[in-house]
């Protein structure tokens, strides 16, 4: 009967959707929320040499920061702040949260250079990704995150320091503004709110 065929087809569809790869497919083709920064199509290259857009981060809560490797003053402190956050995460959170770092410096911070940087700072675990991009991509991301930056005359960048937390869909849910901030709120958010 047509009705039974239909019923069987539905069961098949539902069970297929229930399987993991197709769940991933379903996730992919769910619309990205209108207020998510993952709507951006700006291209980036990871320190592993992969070309991605921001939506590659979709599916896990993400801690985002922008810096550049030749920055001597504040960027090392930013890394410490990020590591302080990581330290405060529960085991479960640690397994889910990813750290995405984007460089201001399109010319010096090539993927290879970023890989070197990651290694020398012991940040080459699976949860840490460094990204290199062209000027247009850097500008767009900074604008999306509300980060001010300016290329200085003698090289180097003048930039604000904001650590941003995105939910699994790329919506900004928290900003940790300024260096050396006590990350209690950020850690609490990552540990509790995102995991249910």
């Amino acid at each position: 009967m047509r009705f039974n065929d239909f019923a069987r087809f539905s069961v098949l569809v539902v069970s297929l959707i229930g399987s993991a790869p197709l769940r991933a497919l379903a996730d992919e083709i769910q619309p990205i929320p209108k207020n998510s920064i993952y709507l951006s199509k700006a291209p980036w290259t990871t320190h592993e040499g992969k070309t991605v857009t921001l939506s590659s981060l979709r599916g896990s809560p993400t801690v985002v920061s922008m810096l550049y490797t030749s920055c001597k003053a504040t960027c090392p402190l930013t890394l410490l702040d990020l590591q302080a956050i990581e330290k405060g995460l529960t085991a479960e959170a640690k397994s889910k949260v990813q750290f995405a770092i984007f460089s201001f410096d399109s010319s010096t911070d090539t993927p290879a250079h970023l890989k070197e940087f990651a290694n020398s700072h012991n940040l080459s675990g699976a949860h840490w990704t460094f990204h290199s991009g062209k000027v247009a991509s850097v500008r767009e991301l900074a604008a999306l995150l509300g980060i001010r930056f300016k290329l200085l005359d003698g090289g180097g960048f003048d930039h604000s320091n904001i650590i941003t937390v995105l939910d699994t869909e790329g919506v900004i849910i928290h900003k940790q503004v300024g260096l050396k901030q006590v990350p209690t709120e950020t850690i609490a958010l990552l540990n509790q709110t995102l995991l249910h």
Binding site: T74, D158, H159, S160, V177
Partner: peptide, 9 residues
């Protein structure tokens, strides 16, 4: 405002 801004700030 050194905490907020890098470089010259």
């Amino acid at each position: 405002d050194e905490n907020l801004f890098c470089a010259s700030g």
